[in-house]
Simulated scan of single mutants.
Amino acid sequence: MALTKCKECSKEISNSARICPHCGVKDPGLSAKQKYIGCLIVIVIAAVIVYFMCSGEEKKVEAAKVCSATDLQCNYDKNMYDAITKCKPLVEQAAKNEFEWNDGIFGLIFSHARINSQKNQLTYIGDKVKFTNIFNAKIYMTYSCTLDLKTKDVVDFNIHEGKIQ
């Protein structure tokens, strides 16, 4: 049991006491400064929660954004999640031996794209993977994955040796 001094009468009391046994003041171990710091911490936590809740709404609005058929950057950003979740497994399945992604923690596996507005398709292109060959050498691979922008399905996939120049 730790001891502290009462904020009113300055006599020693338990730091867990709700009322000072000597003078009867409530919360004798908590000073006004400690209460202020506690309130400040609660306000900061509430602000962080509100910030993250509001920023989630912006992402929903962005996902609902309509892109024109010729707007490459808008379609690239809007469909990136579908491209990663549907194309990354295809790249990994193409490896006959081990593979190694070298895109970093926050890097994207696709660095280039091209759009075919007549077919309403977007082709994502990247070279962020190395395949291990039978001699245990690591070889960069370039891959392309074409998504149908209406159905979000993969309509074409290619992979070959080399890096994008």
Rank of each mutant, 00 (worst) to 15 (best):
K26G: 12
T4F: 07
V155A: 07
D77A: 12
A63K: 06
A46T: 01
K78S: 05
Q165D: 13
D77S: 06
V91Y: 02
T4S: 04
L90Q: 04
I49Y: 05
I164G: 06
H160C: 08
F52T: 01
N75P: 06
I37F: 00
K65W: 05
Q165H: 11
I37S: 00
A64C: 01
V50S: 01
Y143K: 10
A63H: 09
Q118L: 08
V50D: 01
A137G: 00
F99R: 01
S16G: 08
K96Q: 12
Q73F: 08
V129C: 04
E8Y: 04
L72H: 03
I109W: 10
P28R: 04
A95Q: 06
T151W: 13
V91C: 01
L72K: 12
L3K: 13
N97Y: 08
M80L: 15
K26W: 13
I159K: 03
M141Q: 04
V61F: 08
T123V: 08
N116A: 08
I164D: 01
G38I: 08
I45T: 07
D71F: 06
M80F: 11
Q165E: 12
V61H: 09
V48Q: 02
L40S: 12
N158T: 04
C20Y: 06
V129K: 04
S111R: 15
N75R: 10
T85I: 10
K119R: 00
K128S: 06
K60P: 00
N15S: 12
